[in-house]
Design a protein around this nucleic acid. Structure first.
Lengths: 140, 140
DNA sequence: GTAACTGCAAAATATTTGCATCCTT
DNA sequence: AAGGATGCAAATATTTTGCAGTTAC
């Protein structure tokens, strides 16, 4: 169990329960984004379907996780970085989905260029999903 | 009925049926993107749910429509521009979703900056969804 | 006439809600 | 002890599949 699990839950005024600890730990020990099914059917674990729904929803509301829209329109979840706590999302990041293995990753260290909008439009945030082939699949 | 409807269907080797004509016409006479429910419950029309699913899928496969992932993870569909025929998507466009009225639009006339990827990653295309307030809602 | 498309029924999936019980604080 | 979280059952909602009848070409 990752040592940050407990702190993150307390920091967000969430009671520390077994399900929350295990699910949050999955994200902390995993670089890729996870879908509901990835969590529910995780080997060796038996999470109740409803608990997974509710836990993910709670984490998103608290800003611990954020959702990623994928090309096939399934929902994936990924950890927000530190800046995301308190609901203030740090939106200068984008997502990469590998079309071969399906791995979804969240990159923060790359400049996101601003986009021009038509007159009188206001942009609040921007979601960028890049599709391609990850380094591991490219080398196969 | 928009005069382009017939041409577009023939151009994509699709037989011209009433449902396809009506659904395609909705997109041609509408600047916003439409969700499955928008079409099925369209006033004055009674489309069979299954026919809508199949028609949308066919249009996406043919490259007539493309899907837009929205923040609430519902699927919306929008017309591809001419360049998209034959399955060659013209991906230099992005989508705007108004957080007030929910209107989803497809903009093509704005430069999309390239994004740097980690070493050995290959980008095939990029999906950009901008959230904000459209001009109509801003003026209210 | 033939192949493709539609619409109905039904199956399969996915998501939400209610509630009694259990756990955290 | 009190409030919140869980897990089961059941209600809803969504999407897919099968198939007989209909339509386009």
């Amino acid at each position: 169990m990752d040592s940050r699990v407990h702190d993150i839950l307390r920091r967000n005024q969430l009671s520390v329960t077994a399900s929350r600890e295990k699910i949050l730990n999955l994200f902390l020990t995993n670089t890729r984004a996870l879908a509901h099914a990835d969590i529910e059917h995780k080997a060796g674990e038996k999470f109740d379907r409803v608990t997974v729904y509710r836990t993910l929803q709670t984490f998103v509301e608290k800003g611990i996780l954020h959702t990623i829209p994928t090309p096939d329109n399934s929902i994936k979840y990924a950890l927000c970085k530190n800046d995301c706590f308190e609901g203030h999302h740090h939106d200068n990041h984008y997502h990469f989905v590998c079309s071969v293995c399906g791995k979804t990753e969240c990159f923060e260290d790359f400049i996101i260029p601003s986009v021009k909008l038509p007159k009188d439009y206001i942009a609040n945030n921007m979601e960028i999903v890049v599709n391609g082939i990850c380094s591991a699949c490219r080398k196969k």
